[in-house]
Design a protein around this nucleic acid. Structure first.
Lengths: 301, 301
DNA sequence: CAGAGCCATAGATAGGATCTATGAGATGAC
DNA sequence: GTCATCTCATAGATCCTATCTATGGCTCTG
């Protein structure tokens, strides 16, 4: 019985700590089936079930409990030894990092990212590049962008990608012109703002089209940035991501969110960097910090 | 910097201990280029040369020295934890194991193997199957043979193979009819025993043919088994593997070994088992024990 | 009961570990 | 100085396993 893959041992330790395959997958930045497969291999190698499902809880067996301590310690020692040989110190870091965001990503993700940077005492020069989805891959590969957050799905083996969160859509309008209760006729007689799909949010345009509301569009804009101010002063309605609506309501307390009458469509937000082998210590650290900042529960309403 | 392959860490530790790529390859039962490649990957990951070649010595750098202690300890802890969960206990083992040997392999390898078994207090029922080279692969795959030692080269990915030792050839004759000093005419007027090449030892027949000595062959035998007794009683000469000659001289002190006048040709002895994934604990242990027993220095004269 | 969350499995794929083959450099004997 | 042997490095081919996407079954909650 020899082990060759350290990741399987890391999976075991993480599973033990979180009691959840899905949770372990999230922490390890892999998919759930990857953890499920690793668990299967671990079960074979140890000849023991290791974790027994009780409802949605993966309860460790006695054997798993026996194995956890020494394996956790050995892994910690390896990581400390290997990392210690080349550890990155964020405090006081003042290099430049380029973050690629859409306009709306700037408004919603940049504040928590900058807050997190302040918390660790790092002082990097963050350059934000405005993203159009066709430029993300090239920028990351060339190195002009260090990290990108986008709803556009880029399928390429050249990049490293992880899921950050999902985006649902809602309607937003002024409280002076509230929408009626959610239902099939809630938009009757209302006029719309339509925002370009260039930022990756395809669903609102698609919904307006599918539900014959395009004829009610009276304003077309490129970005969501000035939309809240327009809504507050008019009776217009816009369809947009829920977390963006939340931010706008913070800025303009007179705005009102309404649920859409159609079955929800969600869009994933994904974080991209170059592949692991090409990343500097600073980039890896930055990626970790951004992930923690934008996946925080405070963004789930 | 994350490590995923434990074998690379094992390679590092072994390299540090042995100061030799070839030595590490032998101990780890892989080929030398494998270790060379692993060292290259380790150099990249640590950003350090780790081992500097000084002649035929791989001298560790300060960084390698710094890394060795903790990594060695962590590896030992993992192995102890993982092995401890499923350790094979040879003492008292009484199951059956099938060992495939040629006739000459029985005479030269079986004694040290049985000695090693006795040393560890194991009492397996060893069944020795006489090998003809064309039957080795089938027997191993089918499971009728657990382990085979042979000079026949089997190139198949279905089997696991490791090099045990190399065989050189010498001449053997009675001390009552000693051969003259090694030289081109040492066999003038001498008669030969020719032994079949079925056991895999092709070189002696080939040498007799190439040097026009076949006309001097007066005795042809299938196996080497009774050759020493014949030599003691006659003036015949035989060409055979050096280690076999050593064993025969132990049995018949009146025999004399002579070097051959031609540049030496060596033949590898290889050990075969099924692939790792198909081996039982007992088979794996047996393989390790056999390797230790037959590769021991006492066989290098 | 329906929807969401959770885990397991099938099939495809890519990358890295490992091998064989080869060559360059170092060492030691003659 | 030459040659044989030993040692390490690299190229190219291959295979195996970790990882992914897709799918489905089970559990929990409102």
């Amino acid at each position: 019985m020899t082990f060759t893959d350290l990741n399987q041992l890391r999976t075991f330790v993480t599973l033990y700590e979180l009691r959840s395959v899905t949770g372990a997958a999230r922490r390890l930045h892999v998919t759930q089936p990857t953890v499920s497969y690793s668990l299967k291999r671990l079960r074979e190698r140890f000849g023991d079930e290791l974790f027994r499902r009780e409802g949605n809880d993966m309860v460790p067996t006695a054997k798993a409990t026996q194995l956890f301590g020494p394996l956790h310690n050995a892994l910690a020692q390896i990581d400390a030894t290997v990392m210690g040989s080349d550890v990155f110190e964020p405090t006081g870091f003042s290099g430049e990092l380029v973050l690629g965001l859409t306009s709306i990503g700037e408004q919603t993700f940049l504040p928590p990212i900058m807050t997190a940077l302040g918390r660790v005492g790092a002082d990097p020069r963050i350059q934000v590049e405005r993203l159009d989805s066709d430029e993300v891959e090239g920028g990351l590969i060339r190195g002009t962008i260090d990290l990108a957050l986008t709803v556009s799905r880029i399928s390429t083996p050249r990049l490293w990608r992880t899921h950050v969160r999902s985006v649902e859509y809602v309607a937003l309008s002024s409280g002076s012109h509230p929408l009626p209760a959610t239902g099939p006729d809630m938009f009757e007689g209302r006029r719309f703002v339509r925002v370009s799909a260039r930022g990756g949010h395809v669903y609102p345009v698609q919904a307006l089209t599918e539900h014959d509301l395009m004829s009610q569009v009276v304003l077309t804009m490129e970005e969501y940035g000035t939309v809240p101010a327009v809504l507050e002063a008019t009776d217009l309605v816009v369809l947009l991501p829920r977390h963006v609506a939340g931010v706008f309501c913070g800025w303009f307390p007179g705005l009102r969110i309404a649920e859409l009458p159609w079955s929800g469509q969600s869009t994933p937000v994904e974080l991209y960097t170059r592949r692991e082998a090409s990343l500097s210590q600073a980039q890896r650290w930055f990626r970790s910090l951004v992930l923690d900042a934008v996946a925080a529960d405070e963004y789930r309403s």
